[in-house]
């Protein structure tokens, strides 16, 4: 098998740090009487740290309930964090007042998963796109609005006159394009994409992925790209963080994560993804059981209840995300051992 990975040129070195996320947590009071009385909390996001560099795409993968979407919402302060810092330059986003936060939103936008629910059905597409300009009068002079709307619509692959129509008159893929045009309206620096293609048909997914890549280059955007589809994340990301039960268990470049996964959860996750090409199939690790509740997560390492490598230490001590979170880091007590770790993928060819 040709070594396709090695021949693919990795992207030039990382840009300057743009967003530094430090020990961010979001805990919700647990629902249900008994748990509430016991003071139970849902640790949706627990001490998450990473750095997003200018111009890069940081992919975040994990299964449902691992905290990906909560993390996205916390970073935009659509929900308030329980703790931690998010430094955009010298500013901690979490310390901004309501008013300051509104100004800050110009620099950070979000594209949601559900193109149906995320657009106001009573507004025309033009109204949806220009809404932020009304909030920020200095963003764009009013006389330029209609030209800019036509320009944005064309850029995302819609017709320049589509501004007169309503969201329900568009297909799912087209609605996602409207959501992208809206996110671009204020020239943001960071766009958080929360499962932007998972509601779309395969053929439409590919169109939207291409569009996101094109506008990233054109507008100099940095992406936090959240998705559960591993092949989509590999395609679009420069670096990838893997989450499990509210924590990042491993972070690294896409090559490190996909070609040399070091955390047993990353290894199992990658091996579970069905592949079209027999050469891309990995030896499948079938995990036992399912993700435990985030209300009383397992002591020590949260993955230990399903981990084939777990030992006594795993129940007693939570492994730290070793190393520098701008570089490769792994939260496993045995990440450096040679017990099957850091093994290149086994293509079960022949």
């Amino acid at each position: 098998m040709p070594d396709v990975v090695a021949s693919a040129a990795p992207r030039a070195s990382l840009g300057e740090p743009l967003l530094q996320v430090r020990d961010v947590s979001k805990h919700y009071p647990a629902r249900g009487d008994a748990l509430l009385k016991a003071g139970g909390v849902v640790r949706a996001v627990d001490d998450v740290s990473f750095t997003l560099h200018r111009g890069e795409t940081l992919g975040i993968v994990g299964e449902s309930g691992c905290g990906k979407s909560t993390l996205a919402r916390v970073l935009l302060r659509l929900v308030e964090p329980t703790g931690g810092q998010a430094l955009f330059g010298d500013t901690d986003i979490f310390q901004l007042s309501r008013r300051e936060m509104r100004r800050h939103r110009r620099r950070m936008q979000i594209v949601f998963q559900d193109p149906f629910a995320s657009l106001n059905p009573r507004m025309t597409v033009a109204q949806i796109i220009r809404e932020p300009w009304a909030i920020f009068p200095d963003a764009l002079p009013r006389r330029e609005w209609s030209d800019r709307i036509a320009e944005l619509l064309t850029r995302v692959g819609l017709g320049p006159d589509d501004g007169h129509r309503y969201p329900h008159q568009f297909s799912g893929g087209q609605r996602q394009r409207i959501g992208i045009a809206r996110a671009l309206a204020l020239n943001p620096e960071i766009v958080v994409c929360d499962e932007p293609v998972s509601a779309l048909d395969v053929s439409i997914q590919a169109q939207v992925i291409n569009l996101l890549e094109e506008i990233q280059e054109e507008f100099g955007l940095s992406y936090i790209f959240i998705a559960h589809d591993l092949s989509v994340v590999r395609h679009i990301s420069d670096r990838v963080a893997v989450m499990y039960l509210g924590k990042i268990v491993e972070i690294g470049t896409w090559q490190q994560i996909y070609d040399h996964p070091a955390h047993p959860y990353t290894q199992a996750l990658l091996s579970a993804a069905p592949a079209i090409d027999p050469a891309e199939r990995r030896d499948r690790v079938i995990l036992q059981g399912e993700v435990p509740s985030p209300i009383n997560p397992p002591s020590g390492c949260r993955f230990r209840t399903r981990c084939h490598m777990a030992e006594a230490v795993c129940a007693n001590e939570a492994p730290e995300l070793s190393g520098d979170p701008t570089q490769r880091a792994v939260a496993c007590h045995f990440a450096d051992s040679d017990r099957g770790m850091d093994a290149p993928i086994q293509a079960n060819s022949a």
Binding site: V5, A8, V202, S203, S231, H235, I236, W254, I276
Partner: peptide, 8 residues
């Protein structure tokens, strides 16, 4: 339409 490794 399905992204593969070699199309990165």
């Amino acid at each position: 339409s399905v992204p593969r490794a070699e199309m990165k």
